[in-house]
């Protein structure tokens, strides 16, 4: 799924806000295909080619441009990458096939994956009020996670002990992440932004070894027995 980025005038201020956003959540744009909608910039003095160059300089993976006349991009790498010449609601004819259109500007190859996924191992109890945050990968806990404690991981969470606090897995778009614990008594479980509190799963799984995963935008729990 592509993200649509819509620059707004004044462009300099918008670009500053974008930089701040990227600094806050580094990695949000990594490997995400981007479609740039320039409709809001129509009628300003900013050159579409310069806007696109500014975005590309920030390592955004632009696969298409919309909301601008293709002629305005003549002579730039994005010539031919326009999706709909006159904006998103335009019903004109110049639809261009995305895969072909993306050909003239082959995306930069993504940085090579690190050979080993980083993981964090904790071999003592995680006490109430403590927060373990590890955005880079999986977290393994040997010991209990107390009520009022939280584990936040970019990847999966494995708890060899009772989970009484919160477990938040797949922090940065990790829909594949899972949560495992040997005894479920959790206050809150979340994967990829979708969370459920203890009311959701009721008493049936309480105290059981459980795994939690995301199944088409639905948080699912099952006993590991």
């Amino acid at each position: 799924m592509a993200l649509i980025v819509v620059p707004e005038p004044p462009f300099e201020a918008w670009l500053t806000a974008l930089d701040q956003q990227m600094a806050r959540s580094a990695g949000f744009f990594i490997d995400r295909p981007i479609v740039v909608n320039l409709a809001a910039m129509a009628g300003t003095d900013d050159d579409p080619a310069q806007i696109l160059a500014a975005l590309e300089a920030r390592d955004l993976r632009i696969i298409g441009v919309e909301g601008v006349e293709m002629a305005a991009l003549r002579g730039t790498p994005w010539f031919g990458a326009t999706l709909a010449a006159s904006g998103r609601e335009g019903k004109q004819d110049k639809f261009i096939d995305i895969p072909e259109a993306a050909e003239p500007s082959p995306p930069e190859p993504p940085p090579p994956e690190p050979a080993r996924r980083p993981s964090l191992l904790i071999t003592r109890p995680v006490r109430s009020g403590q927060s373990i945050v590890f955005e880079e990968g999986d977290v393994t806990i040997i010991g209990p996670v107390s009520s009022g404690a939280e584990i936040i991981a970019g990847g999966s969470i494995h708890i060899y002990g009772t989970l009484r606090g919160r477990a938040v897995a797949g922090l940065l778009g990790g829909a594949e992440a899972r949560i495992f614990c040997t005894k479920l008594a959790a206050e809150l479980l979340a994967i990829d932004g979708l969370y459920r509190t203890a009311d959701h799963w009721g008493h049936g799984l309480h105290g059981k070894p459980v795994q939690v995963w995301l199944d088409d935008k639905e948080l699912r729990l099952a006993a590991l027995e």
């Binding site: 006490r127 009020g129 009520s147």
Partner: peptide
């Protein structure tokens, strides 16, 4: 009782 136990747990974390 549960509230005392949770507060003690927090204190143990601080002791550590």
């Amino acid at each position: 009782e549960v509230s005392s136990v949770r507060d003690s747990d927090r204190i143990i974390g601080l002791l550590d």
